[in-house]
Design a protein around this nucleic acid. Structure first.
Lengths: 330, 330
DNA sequence: GTGAAAGCGCTAACAG
DNA sequence: CTGTTAGCGCTTTCAC
């Protein structure tokens, strides 16, 4: 690796001139510029990032801490973050944190130690780890106390899901609540419940404990073998819905005739399972993109008009819900 | 951020003693140790990574450059890399490079400038960008010239796929070749062809140009509306297979009765589409894990017994291929 | 065992 | 417009 010193001597100028050239700060004569350009070329020089960052106390690293990158919802979000950041010249540090506080902590530690420009997390850590002082925006699972957040309209989503199944004739509904009691799940859930309460239907609530496929399947088995016969299940995620779907198939029941299903997220897979999954679409890519933009503004002291960005969701009707309103008994 | 100097003065020792304590190199008396420990605690000190890396000319960053993180095969691989690296105290820099040479180049640039410990890529760049001198291991799409590589047994995979469909009674086969003419796709392909040649079947070859879902669907439409009637299609990936599946459904044909399908990769989704997709299982997580381990050894000058690691693949029979041997005419 | 001091590569006053 | 210089925070001889 060539250094700025070598470039300077090769170009016959001082290091500060080279530095000025590189950082585009201060004046550099045309002749000097030519010589420097050539020297850089010849030496295949590029500035040492550690040295730059040591000096400037800044780096262009941005962390993205995700609960589980193999959950299909998150890669899309990551892509949104990555593409925005790359254009702005930032680098993404990806962390797969499994909800594990220690892992989260060690990533935050690293980011702080690296003078990172900021971090995008799925869970607000400011309360738990106030010692890590770096620009942060929460995505998806945005809580009341998060200062900066990007999330989808959960209350609208919960409402739409409940409305969709009720209008499709649901009478006896199982509402499966998401595994985390994070604000986003809570909101969706209570919004669904509010709708259900005012509608003329029966429902019962179940609590899921996991986003892991096989664990969800076990829960599904449990729910389905209970004495209650449901004609509709509202699920907290598409991963849940697909797992339930499998289980329902295994019992030789028909979707949506015997049981209708509605998911949440609209992951890629949902379109291709059979029947295709009706669900609430969340703009994962956009969430990532917006979050990255917020971090960017934060890191560059740009004015922020909206600290909390709420994105729209919408209902996607596919094959797992019934098309027309109809009454059925159990 | 506290500095080592502050810790030193607070502990009443010199910076070098603190440094020795931190790096576990050289002697530190028990008393000094206690005082330093306390000072670090009080000041919530952690070493500045830029300074460390400037001095040591090393960093614990490892790049992982992936073609498309929203392609479900890669997140599993990424997870394998991430989990190994995290345990060893390295940080993952994730790049979503879209096969774009410029993006790849800029990531490599960054990694070199950061004294990164190494990079794991899906495509060997040594030939195209020899100027980037850092430990590299190629995963998945490992070519002949890659020095360090982790890949699945493509030739075995291609063979297994062809064998599976032939044994299930294939007579008229469309072999869709993967979009990249990378060594892995080539190997699979020619291995399938070799098998097909010695079997008593007809086949025809098609070339796919994309991993993008909707583009594949267009290709599928093209292939299926041709005058040739195939009873079997061998696809280069599960994403391809799922896209074809959709298209076949749309034409109201039955899988596997009218057409049988075999994919490649065994992504999560394959189990849950309908019918479930028969495919060749590739150990994505393990590939990532092994690649990370190689990088780790490389970065730490450990002896490497195997520069090229070939992982096993196996056939997963599910619903998209016929169970028993049977003859059919078009 | 410990501290003083040099220096990693870069930037930013500052003087010219 | 340019060069000299100090110093970012850390590690590492080398004397003591």
């Amino acid at each position: 690796m060539a250094t700025i010193k070598q470039v300077a001597s090769k170009a016959g100028v001082s290091v500060s001139t080279v530095s000025r050239y590189i950082t585009h700060k201060g004046y550099v004569s045309a002749e000097a510029e030519v010589k420097i350009k050539k020297a850089i070329q010849d030496l295949n020089y590029s500035p040492n990032i550690s040295a730059q960052s040591l000096k400037s106390k800044k780096s262009n690293l941005v962390g993205l801490l995700l609960p589980d990158i193999s959950n299909p919802f998150f890669p899309m979000l990551a892509k949104g973050v990555e593409e925005f950041l790359r254009e702005k010249g930032y680098q993404l540090i990806l962390g797969n944190v499994n909800e594990d506080r220690e892992i989260i902590k060690s990533y935050l530690q690293f980011l702080v130690q690296s003078n990172a420009a900021g971090v995008i997390t799925t869970v607000d850590f400011k309360e738990e780890f106030p010692e890590f002082d770096l620009p942060a925006v929460t995505v998806d699972r945005v809580g009341k106390k998060s200062e900066f957040g990007v999330f989808a309209d959960n209350s609208q989503g919960g409402f739409l899901a409940a409305k969709a199944v009720v209008e499709a004739g649901a009478q006896h509904i199982a509402v499966v609540r998401g595994p985390l009691t994070t604000d986003n799940t809570n909101e969706r859930f209570s919004s669904s419940i509010t709708y259900l309460n005012q509608a003329d239907v029966n429902y019962q609530v179940f609590q899921s404990m996991s986003y892991d496929f096989s664990e969800i399947q076990a829960e599904a088995e449990e729910l389905l073998k209970g004495k209650e016969r449901f004609d509709t299940i509202i699920l907290p995620s598409d991963v849940h819905a697909v797992a339930y779907m499998q289980e329902i198939h295994r019992l030789n029941k028909h979707i949506p005739e015997d049981i209708q299903l509605i998911g949440y997220d609209d992951i890629l897979m949902s379109k291709y399972v059979s029947p295709a999954l009706s669900t609430i679409h969340q703009p994962a890519y956009e969430m990532g993109h917006e979050a990255a933009q917020l971090i960017y503004k934060l890191a560059n002291n740009q004015s922020i008009d909206q600290k909390q960005i709420k994105l729209k969701v919408f209902y996607v009707e596919r094959g797992s819900t019934r098309k027309i309103k109809e009454n059925e008994n159990e």
